[in-house]
Amino acid sequence: MSENPETDQPMPLVSHLTELRTRLLRCVAAIFLIFAGLFSFAQQIYTLVSAPLREHLPANATMIATDVASPFLTPFKLTMIVSLFLAIPFILQQIWGFIAPGLYRHEKRIAIPLLVSSIFLFYAGMAFAYFLVFPLIFGFFASATEIPVAVVLLVWIGVVDVQYLKKIRPYVIIGCFVVGMILTPPDIFSQTLLAVPMWMLFEVGVLCGSLIRKRSHEPDEANNDHNDQPPATQP
């Protein structure tokens, strides 16, 4: 049981649940209505959203599908997410409509500006990420994909040793977070999202370098074992 502060009359729990179900169904219906209107433009939406990434791909590089159904499912999923984003004002309005009867009058005066500002800040954050953060991060990732290859080549030609790379691992981790701090907005979440993939790329390079050195030493060890065998005695 809960009480309405305006009337001080108890409201049955079943009524709350019924209203909640109704508002959730309205939110789902709004999302699917927007999706139905955008589905025919799914490919154009995919092209628009992926533009910051495609602009920073290396020369003659293209985006590829990693699954048979990806060319169809990826624009489909992206259009569904865009529909959810466009439906946010209506969803927030439904949330407000559900909780408003439980608020006092002075609380409602505070909540309405909060609702409007939340919608504005939501879309402002999306615009900031699309036009500023995404190009910066994608540009860095496009240039950093060579990290495993560079590490493997350095180990292969003998410039650095795998043990040395493992020894400097703490400094590499710190360097990744410093780069993430410089290239991302001033918050630990964005910094971590950029630093951890860089660190993982380094670890992949160290792992591949270890496998290469191990295979390159196997023939030498086999020859040494053969040479260490005592000569056969003549009868």
Results as ranks from 00 to 15, higher is better:
204 V>D: 07
120 F>K: 03
178 V>H: 06
107 E>S: 03
46 Y>P: 04
81 I>R: 11
33 L>E: 12
50 S>F: 15
90 F>I: 06
53 L>I: 13
200 M>K: 04
187 D>V: 00
187 D>G: 02
178 V>Y: 06
164 Y>K: 10
22 T>L: 15
126 M>C: 10
82 V>I: 14
204 V>F: 10
150 A>P: 02
158 G>F: 12
18 T>D: 15
97 G>Q: 12
230 P>L: 15
49 V>N: 03
28 V>T: 05
12 P>I: 07
137 I>F: 07
107 E>C: 07
48 L>M: 13
199 W>R: 10
197 P>M: 11
103 L>G: 11
99 I>N: 02
143 S>L: 12
75 P>L: 01
162 V>N: 07
191 Q>W: 01
235 P>E: 13
48 L>K: 13
153 L>F: 09
181 M>W: 11
189 F>R: 14
88 I>G: 02
45 I>K: 01
100 A>F: 01
185 P>K: 01
153 L>R: 15
170 P>D: 08
30 A>P: 01
231 P>E: 12
226 H>A: 14
93 Q>R: 03
56 H>A: 08
234 Q>H: 14
205 G>S: 05
54 R>L: 00
162 V>S: 07
211 L>W: 13
27 C>M: 11
188 I>S: 11
128 F>R: 03
158 G>K: 00
203 E>G: 04
135 P>Q: 05
84 L>D: 05
162 V>A: 04
109 R>S: 14
215 R>F: 15
151 V>C: 05
43 Q>P: 09
5 P>W: 08
95 I>G: 08
88 I>E: 06
86 L>G: 10
123 Y>G: 07
119 I>A: 12
108 K>P: 00
204 V>N: 07
117 S>G: 05
204 V>K: 07
12 P>E: 04
99 I>S: 03
160 V>D: 02
207 L>M: 15
24 L>Q: 09
163 Q>V: 13
195 A>F: 03
76 F>C: 07
183 L>M: 12
11 M>P: 00
132 L>N: 05
45 I>T: 06
192 T>R: 02
37 G>R: 12
44 Q>E: 15
161 D>Q: 11
166 K>Y: 09
106 H>N: 05
62 T>D: 11
108 K>S: 08
24 L>P: 05
114 L>Q: 01
179 V>K: 00
211 L>Q: 13
226 H>E: 15
